[in-house]
């Protein structure tokens, strides 16, 4: 149970970073932390006591393996995370080009 709570704390760290930090790069880091907390939680949910990795091989017979499906799903989620993070980094670079700053309190021309 404690490990799920640690996961939740990690997620909250990410959210805090997104909501509270002013630097664009730190916000992106916050998103990455929150994303990985969710992924880690998904992997932990699939774990079972004394389980081993679900890789079939011709030599060893596996009796007690962890749920393989979340691992496949998390791989997909990681790929999606890669795409969004890249896009965010590219956007951040472009924003720096136009505004010459990473401070979001100085980037607020849109309001109302």
């Amino acid at each position: 149970m404690i490990i799920y709570l640690l996961c939740l704390i990690l997620f909250c760290c990410g959210l805090y970073c997104i909501l509270r930090k002013r630097n664009i790069i730190k916000i992106i880091l916050g998103i990455i932390i929150a994303e990985y907390a969710v992924n880690l939680f998904f992997i932990l949910v699939a774990y079972r006591m004394e389980g081993r990795s679900p890789i079939l091989s011709s030599e060893v017979e596996i009796v007690n393996m962890v749920d393989p499906l979340p691992q496949a799903l998390v791989l997909t989620a990681i790929v999606i995370g890669l795409a969004t993070t890249t896009l965010l980094v590219a956007l951040a670079m472009r924003i720096y080009e136009k505004y010459k700053t990473f401070d979001i309190t100085k980037i607020k021309e849109l309001r109302g």
């Binding site: 965010l88 956007l91 924003i95 021309e109």
Partner: peptide
């Protein structure tokens, strides 16, 4: 400028 800010 505005597009990038909105998109972010």
């Amino acid at each position: 400028r505005h597009e990038l800010e909105a998109a972010f």
